[in-house]
Design a protein around this nucleic acid. Structure first.
Lengths: 108, 108
DNA sequence: ACTATACGCAACTGATTGGTTGCACATCGG
DNA sequence: CCGATGTGCAACCAATCAGTTGCGTATAGT
């Protein structure tokens, strides 16, 4: 488990605005900075920065086609985060422990 | 699912130092700010602040006995965070989706 | 070719924050 | 009772960051 990736990942999810962006991109399948900014009270550049941070954390990946840069969700990192939480929390919580075993199974 | 709690939770986990504190407290079962600061290159007050943030996020809970304030892990919030990730990521990742169903089962 | 659209980069600003120092208060042990 | 230990609170500092504005560039459509 890469610690730095976890840092970026949790930090990225820590901001309400960024988490909201992830949710919106998730709902729509894909989106551009301009599209997302249209529904928000912030500028396109602000959204673009957040998207860049999310992409750096590995949560999103960008694909530029023509003059558009579309973002999509990359689910992999979420699993890493879940794995970390399970590992830390497993000792105290039976449900999390069980969930951890379930994760192990599906990974193997 | 309380959005504000998620904000605090992810933000708390976003800092490497704080996540490390959670891990250490998890390993030892419980710890005080002074104990934790002894192994770190920062002051006790710095650690105390971080612990306060983690407690505010619900990840830790403090118990003062005499002149000591011991912190322990509260696993509940971790489940909330896992639930959020599963919800957002389930659409793209079969393993996360399966994990979500597993979580639902154990919650019901 | 020209205009409108979509984007990225850079500089600046205000707010947040992680960390420090200093101090006052409570508790334990002699 | 008194010194040592453990905490909490407040002020302060440096760094980071979210957001803005301004500008240059590339692509699409007419």
């Amino acid at each position: 488990m890469d610690a730095r990736r976890l840092d970026e990942l949790f930090a990225a999810l820590g901001d309400p605005g960024r988490r909201s962006l992830v949710e919106t991109v998730a709902e729509r399948g894909s989106a551009t900075a301009t599209e997302l900014a249209a529904d928000l009270p912030v500028t396109r550049q602000a959204v673009a920065k957040q998207l860049a941070a999310l992409a750096a954390a590995g949560l999103l990946h960008a694909t530029r086609t023509g003059r558009e840069t579309r973002y999509e969700v990359t689910p992999g990192p979420l699993e890493e985060a879940v794995a970390w939480m399970v590992e830390v929390g497993a000792r105290w919580d039976d449900r999390l422990a069980a969930l951890g075993r379930s994760l192990e199974q599906r990974r193997g």
